[in-house]
């Protein structure tokens, strides 16, 4: 049985249909036309579906859509645009830390939340913070360096 739920995503209201087992990930991708949030494993392991709910990073694949009705959801589409990327995105652009890009939206969400909490994050803090997100292309070093650059830029 599906019911109507209204989600507030990136500051906009989205009326959606969701069943008891429908995840936020499915609704974002299939109904809100926000495919930037990726499905990598549907088990909460890879982190490609990370989004912010109430400003905190969560797995969209482990979050039920009907459990988000009164919460503010922010997806990759909401943290920056190609013309106005946020600090993490800009640092990733500048440092060549992106390869296939499939993990990148989740990585950006995790890093953005991390820097929100620890604006002066050092390398070790960043490594801890990004351990939520798998990347199979980069070997992580450049991503960690990019987030560190974003932190330094934001601080100065």
């Amino acid at each position: 049985m599906t019911e109507m739920v209204t989600l507030r995503v990136n500051g906009r209201e989205h009326p959606c249909r969701a069943g008891i087992a429908t995840t936020l990930l499915t609704v974002l991708r299939d109904q809100c036309e926000l495919p930037g949030t990726k499905r990598g494993c549907n088990q909460g392991v890879c982190g490609a579906c990370s989004v912010l709910v109430g400003g905190k990073p969560v797995r969209a694949c482990l979050t039920l859509a009907t459990d988000c009705e009164d919460r503010e959801v922010t997806t990759i589409e909401g943290v920056g645009t190609p013309a106005r990327p946020n600090a993490v995105q800009q640092a990733l652009i500048d440092t060549g830390a992106v390869q296939c890009g499939f993990c990148t939206p989740g990585m950006v969400i995790a890093a953005t939340a991390l820097l929100e909490e620890h604006p002066d994050a050092d390398i070790e803090t960043i490594r801890q913070g990004l351990s939520s997100n798998l990347c199979r292309c980069s070997g992580y070093r450049k991503i960690v360096e990019a987030v560190s650059l974003a932190a330094r830029r934001t601080a100065s």
Partner: peptide, 21 residues
């Protein structure tokens, strides 16, 4: 030169389109 990927902006901002999208 170590220039950034041509498509890096679309990838970092979630606009890159993959098959599932």
């Amino acid at each position: 030169q170590s220039i950034p990927r041509l498509e890096v902006r679309e990838k970092t901002t979630g606009r890159a389109q993959y098959i599932a999208d």
